[in-house]
Design a protein around this nucleic acid. Structure first.
Length: 418
RNA sequence: GUGAGCGUAGCUCAGCUGGUAGAGCCCCGGAUUGUGGCUCCGGUAGCCGUGGGUUCGAGUCCCAUCGCUCACCCCA
């Protein structure tokens, strides 16, 4: 048996890193006033077609789309923003309010798996609605910077761009395509294909001839509408005042149609070809487009698998998980269970692994050692008769000692403390 | 969807121009009757991804197929 392609297990070796990362992300989000929402994993297919865009790669070839038993077309969410906007409109949360929402969970895209890319992957996302001011763009970016810093992430760079309004962007795209059509003979096959699908990406071409053509091409940032240009300048100024370094990437366009104005990405060069850990941007037209009243909005998503990969590559220890104590039972096994339960009653925070089933004393101690527990608690016939426990320090060089149950409890309590 | 590399023990891998499947780690037992780690001794462990072909003989060569990985594309 094997898992479905691109669907992975997170095994106990990795879960501590996940848990720590999730805890940091949650703490920072809540520190900025974000509240958690829990959203369905499935939405109507139409929601994604209308938000992400009909001609994007995601909608055209990457969605897990099914008919349910009543014949409705439903889709496993390929990203979180659409569902979050839908929930905001449906609940009325967006009316006369400026909610700051965050969510976490699995997303699904039917792509060819590779390093940093799974078919089921996990994102933490956050969105703010109802605030158009550039201060919010800057605050959100500064917040992601804080988050990545507190996560201990090294060597990530911030890239920034502005896409302007949908109108100015469409006009620019037309101008760019017109320019490129005039020089089509100098483009390679890849760039000609992009001409129809994603002309802005042609700026990324590695072909020297194509680069020469692009050097004289009109630039998006020079063709922003006045309000967007001013907005972008303000965001840049605020980032500089906050001391958050960034790099302008004119070909940063994001793959989803709904973005407007500010877009940003945190990238690492340690992740192979999929270098983006965290990315987001404004989507001022999306709420209205999905049937809500006009509401500016901005959001971002953080890729958990990529984050965890970076943290593990940096050698983050990922503490936790191992039991504090391992109970060795060298008497009636039932007495082992009783003692274990009594310990749990006395110490709710205790991580105790009680030996179950038969094994030699020696083998049990070996298991105690392997479990990573700091201390072995030994319950034999004599301890049982005396209402005592023998405590053996497995990590230090302390002497083992036989203690009455209540004293053993206080010793354990002191150990759990630190 | 396209391309390349790789599938041998639970894990990491070796296996030469085809000739009876190996190592390390892990696990189990013993040396040590209720004392782990270190050491030593012993043990379990594989339709060599699957199917076909060539051959007296295939882990090894050929074809197909499935899977994994990386890259392109695109993206978290």
């Amino acid at each position: 048996m094997q898992s479905v392609r691109g669907f992975c297990d997170v095994l106990p070796e990795e879960t501590p890193v996940w848990q720590q990362a999730e805890a940091v992300v949650r703490r920072v989000l809540e520190a900025y006033g974000y509240q958690e929402v829990r959203l369905p994993v499935i939405e109507r297919t139409e929601l994604f077609q209308r938000s992400i865009g009909e001609v994007t790669d995601i909608v055209e070839k990457e969605m897990y789309t099914f008919e349910d038993r009543s014949g409705d077309s439903i889709t496993l969410r390929p990203e979180g923003t659409a569902g979050c906007v839908r929930a905001g409109i449906e609940s009325g949360l967006l009316h006369h309010a400026e909610p700051r929402l965050w969510y976490a969970g699995p997303m699904f895209r039917h792509e060819r798996p590779q390093k940093g890319r799974l078919r089921q992957f996990h994102q933490v996302g956050a969105e703010v609605f109802g605030v158009a001011a550039p201060e919010l763009d800057a605050e959100m970016i500064v917040m992601t910077a804080r988050m990545l810093r507190e996560l201990g992430l090294e060597d990530v760079q911030l890239q920034l761009n502005s896409l302007g309004t949908p109108e100015s962007r469409a006009a620019y795209r037309e101008a760019l395509v017109a320019y490129l059509r005039r020089h089509e003979d100098r483009l390679d096959d890849d760039s000609r294909r992009r001409l129809a699908t994603n002309p802005l990406r042609i700026f990324d071409s590695k072909d020297p001839e194509v680069q020469a053509v692009m050097a004289d091409a009109p630039r998006l940032l020079d063709n922003l509408d006045a309000a967007s240009a001013e907005h972008f300048a303000k965001v840049r100024e605020l980032l500089e005042r906050a001391g958050v370094p960034y790099e302008i990437n004119p070909s940063l366009v994001r793959g989803l149609d709904y973005y407007t104005r500010t877009v940003f990405e945190w990238v690492s060069d340690r992740l192979g070809a999929q270098g983006t850990v965290c990315a987001g941007g404004r989507f001022d037209a999306l709420v209205e487009q999905l049937g809500g009243r006009p509401t500016p909005a901005i959001g971002f998503a953080l890729g958990m698998e990529r984050l965890v990969a970076l943290l593990r590559e940096q050698g983050e220890p990922g503490r936790g998980g191992a039991p504090h104590a391992y109970l060795v039972v060298a008497t009636d096994p039932g007495a082992g269970l009783e003692t274990a339960e009594a310990l749990r009653d006395a110490l709710p925070g205790l991580r105790l692994q009680a030996h179950a089933g038969g094994a030699s004393f020696k083998a049990q101690l070996k298991r105690a050692d392997r479990s990573g527990a700091r201390v072995a608690l030994i319950l034999g016939d004599e301890e049982r008769a005396d209402g005592a426990l023998t405590m053996k320090d497995l990590r230090g060089d302390g002497e083992q000692q036989r203690l009455p149950f209540s004293e053993a409890v206080s010793h354990l309590q002191a150990w759990i403390g630190d």
